[in-house]
């Protein structure tokens, strides 16, 4: 089936299988930042934005994205690098496999929540699993990042 997508601001028309999910479509299109770590919608590594909302790309049928605006970290390189600066200074990217999806959620949170408390930050980011860091360093980095912005 042919669908129209806007990926990181660029319009594309692509052919997808009916039961294809966005994470696979995006990887096939070369957006290799999109990682998958489960088949049960549990890990959050595949997080991208659909019309600006953080969404599990592994769980959305590509066809459903027809006409939508998709954003991956490839399209947010500058914002991502700014956050990466803080995250890496904290040492809170270890294997890094979870980092792009995590960063996408952090950037979404930044625009959705104003002055979030620690609890609100943790709540917003809970859907991003990380097996390496134990989350504390990520939290330190997010708080520093928000401070720097403020």
């Amino acid at each position: 089936m042919l669908i129209n997508l806007s990926i990181n601001g660029k319009d594309v028309r692509i052919d997808v299988a009916k039961d294809e999910f966005l994470a696979d479509t995006l990887r096939a299109q070369g957006f290799l930042s999109v990682k998958k770590a489960c088949d049960t919608s549990c890990c959050g590594l595949c997080t991208i934005w659909i019309d600006g909302k953080p969404t599990l790309s592994c769980s959305v049928l590509s066809i459903r994205a027809d006409g939508k605006k998709l954003t991956t970290i490839e399209g947010l390189q500058q914002e991502a690098a700014e956050f990466a600066e803080v995250l890496t200074a904290e040492g809170a990217e270890q294997c890094g496999f979870c980092s792009p999806g995590f960063t996408m959620t952090v950037l979404a949170m930044k625009s959705e929540l104003k002055n979030p408390s620690d609890d609100e930050i943790v709540h917003y980011l809970t859907g991003n699993l990380c097996r390496c860091t134990g989350y504390m360093g990520q939290l330190r980095a997010v708080k520093k990042y928000l401070e720097v912005l403020a």
């Binding site: 919608s41 953080p54 709540h123």
Partner: peptide, 12 residues
């Protein structure tokens, strides 16, 4: 519903 998995899941 707010306890279920995560924001990006609940957007689905």
């Amino acid at each position: 519903v707010s306890q279920i998995i995560g924001v990006q899941f609940r957007n689905v």
